[in-house]
Nucleic acid binder design. Structure first.
Lengths: 218, 218
DNA sequence: CACTGTGAATTGGTTCACAGCC
DNA sequence: GGCTGTGAACCAATTCACAGTG
């Protein structure tokens, strides 16, 4: 639960995960500013836009290098590019989606992934009824074929949208296929994976359930 | 960005937000165990099931009271109930959904919310084409009517599924309508709200973009 | 002179370790 | 004996504050 393994081609060890999680937010705002023609930004201004502090932003960036100019700030488009590079967002990432039920179909049809360079290139489902059908032009394959298919296409990222009780066995097959990162939508407490595999879960119900604590429920 | 206000009917002040965010996970596992007939659980066992440590679980629970029995552990169904109560999950929560586009419709149709006691009772959209149409039996209302409609139904929670550039103005209207908690799906960096309003964002693209850092992108 | 980059100080969260109890 | 509950010790993350620089 605690330790992750970092590839670290730029001696990336020891960078806190919270920092990594903030970078995409920085990246998005920087790209937007760049598109709007803003050329320079200070950590102070960036903090305002992101709801963060100048110190936090400077410290975060300092893990990766020295990107700013004293007295001036940061070159927006340069910094946007560097952060993109740090995150590995300069290439397109092919992804697999497992579970083509209601939720899975919504995910398959969501244009936001492709817009950010994440392309769903393979669909899998257990239901024989669904296998062979197409969604967004992609044929649904059987989960049994998954390990080979994943290897063949060299897919490292998978989105999991299966029922909770199928999540672990399907995960095992994903790992067999060489997947290294899983975005999990299944409402399961714990997905068992080796320590070098990244798992992140999205569960809106859990989020709602923590928000109600702060509401007056008298 | 840092401070939140806690209602605190049980002197809830000073409870870290991370703790609150873990409680729903505990609750889910406990309810499941209870349904399976498990009567007693130790912090050690619970930690195994949740991918957490015994100390973490005991410490978390100790913020709210003493629920266990030394030498034995916790009564599963009792603890499940208590955590539910702490989180305010004993009542049904009516919710509004703003933005009935592709994503919004998927959310409206997702059965998981209602199953957890979160019922979408009002839909809003700006598009005059959509106003009046029904989704899941609920008529879509105009965003202009929102503040009054929210007050009339005493809705405290809203789900935001509008385009990024509409997020802030729509949020302002939600606040005008008395909404206290917002689950935000819009890909926006910062939603400006007063400090007593809870906002949580769900953005799968950001999650993917942070995962790629850990992949070999050579 | 206005900003960055960064050690040092501080704050916040987790884990330890043990006293107390069933 | 086996477990909880909890201060104390530890570790991690944020913020401070200032030296260094274009």
């Amino acid at each position: 639960m605690k330790k992750r393994v970092v590839p670290g081609h730029v001696l990336a060890t020891e960078i806190p995960d919270v920092v990594i999680q903030r970078l995409p937010l920085y990246q998005r705002t920087l790209s937007l500013m760049s598109k709007e023609g803003v050329e320079v930004v200070s950590s102070f201004r960036l903090g305002e836009l992101l709801g963060s502090t100048p110190a936090q932003i400077r410290k975060d960036l300092s893990y990766f290098g020295r990107f700013g100019k004293q007295g001036t700030g940061y070159d927006v488009s340069y910094l946007a590019d560097r952060v993109k590079q740090i995150l590995g967002l300069e290439k397109e990432w092919p992804m697999a989606l497992v579970g083509v039920g209601r939720l899975g179909q919504a995910i398959a049809r969501y244009p936001g992934f492709a817009a950010a360079g994440f392309r769903i290139v393979a669909l899998f489902d257990t239901d024989p009824e669904k296998v062979g059908k197409r969604v967004e032009g992609i044929a649904i394959q059987s989960v049994e074929e998954m390990p080979q298919a994943l290897k063949a296409e060299d897919i490292q990222i998978a989105i999991l949208a299966v029922p909770a009780d199928r999540a672990q066995p399907v995960t095992d097959l994903l790992l067999e296929g060489g997947v290294k990162a899983i975005l999990n939508y299944a409402p399961i407490s714990l997905l068992r994976v080796p320590p070098d595999i990244v798992v992140r879960s999205i569960d809106p119900v859990l989020v709602l359930q923590s928000m109600t604590f702060y509401l007056n429920s008298y």
